[in-house]
């Protein structure tokens, strides 16, 4: 589990359009064309968003004839959860370092 993986996931999640796409494919596999009907953007723009989600491992892609089918990949949240778990531990580590540093420089 690398920071790069987590970054890919976070960047993919940062966009509200892509979060909506994830909700669409959470319980059923959908073709790119079906997903596109929910958005007022070009099919190409939809495909680009889907590729971002796919590269981040948030959705799986499967070809069936000329169609590309997408579905949510729940395991992808692992790296993000790790980052969340790190928020306060990292902050408190900084607090400890800063307080002790300041105290030493005063004495």
């Amino acid at each position: 589990m690398t920071v790069e993986t987590a970054d890919l996931v976070l960047r993919a999640l940062a966009d509200p359009t892509r979060r909506t796409m994830l909700r669409l494919v959470r319980s059923q596999e959908l073709a790119a064309g079906q997903i596109a009907t929910h958005f007022s953007m070009t099919q190409q723009a939809v495909s680009q968003h889907l590729q971002v989600l796919n590269r981040a491992g948030l959705i799986s892609e499967r070809r069936e004839g000329t169609r590309r089918l997408y579905q949510l990949q729940p395991d992808a949240l692992g790296p993000v959860r790790e980052l969340l778990d790190d928020l306060w531990p990292d902050a408190l580590d900084r607090l400890k370092r800063v307080v002790e540093q300041d105290k030493r420089s005063r004495s």
Binding site: A6, L10, L13, A14, L77, V80, R81, L83, L84, D86, L87, W88, D90, A91
Partner: peptide
């Protein structure tokens, strides 16, 4: 998760 994680980093 995305928002909180970004905040933490």
């Amino acid at each position: 998760l995305a928002a909180i994680s970004r905040a933490g980093r």
